[in-house]
Amino acid sequence: MVEVRIRINGVDRELDIPPQVSLLDALREHLGLTGTKKGCDQGACGACTVLVDGERINSCLTLAVQYAGREITTIEGVDHPLQEAFVRNDGLQCGYCTPGQICSAVGMLAEHRAGAPSAVTEPPGAPGGELTGAEIRERMSGNICRCAAYNGIVDAIQEVAR
């Protein structure tokens, strides 16, 4: 067992867990924060996306011990206009992917504001500017919605980005 101290949603937490426990399993099974979903458990679907020090990560691919002393934000700790925008724009259907979509979108908007370019930024490599639908789709490509609510997701993100 390993003692891990992390800050989750603004609260300092101490875990006594085996070193091989993923951050996802630590959140869900050891802390009862079940908003973060386990989809593929291989980093391909994005349902497990959380924010670490404001940056989005797939929590299923990382060990909890890697994040000792870091600030983790799960969907339970998110308070962002995107949440209402997702509802207004029909950016969800079954809702399973929504926590990961919202956490990813929060991180993506911060990346964009900081000037991080994407593969479709015009001109290539130029930061900033208005987020187009194509750019949002590219930046959010790590998050899959099996119900195909992509148009609503893009509309919600564009609404908040404006």
Rank of each mutant, 00 (worst) to 15 (best):
C45I: 03
E14W: 05
K37E: 13
L31A: 02
G43V: 02
D16G: 11
V50M: 01
N58K: 15
E29V: 00
R13H: 06
G32H: 07
Y67F: 15
L33P: 06
G32N: 08
T62A: 14
S22A: 04
I57T: 02
R28W: 09
G54S: 08
L23F: 02
R28P: 06
D53S: 06
L61P: 04
A47V: 05
S59N: 09
C60K: 01
V52I: 15
H30R: 14
G39Q: 05
T49C: 12
T36Y: 06
P18Q: 10
D16T: 12
T34R: 06
R13D: 02
D25T: 05
Q66K: 09
Q42V: 09
V65L: 09
L51C: 08
I57V: 14
E55R: 15
L31T: 00
H30A: 10
L33D: 06
L23H: 02
T62I: 09
I17D: 01
Q20R: 14
E29N: 07
L27V: 01
R13W: 01
L31S: 00
N58F: 13
L15S: 08
V65G: 05
A44W: 12
G43L: 03
L27G: 00
P18E: 12
K38H: 06
L51Y: 10
E14P: 03
A44Y: 13
T49A: 11
K38R: 13
P18V: 08
Q42Y: 08
H30V: 07
T49M: 12
K38N: 12
D25W: 13
D53M: 10
G46C: 12
T34D: 08
V50A: 04
E29L: 05
G43T: 03
K37T: 04
L27Q: 00
L15Y: 01
G54R: 04
A26E: 01
V52P: 13
L63P: 07
G54K: 05
L61C: 14
T62K: 15
V50Q: 02
Q66G: 13
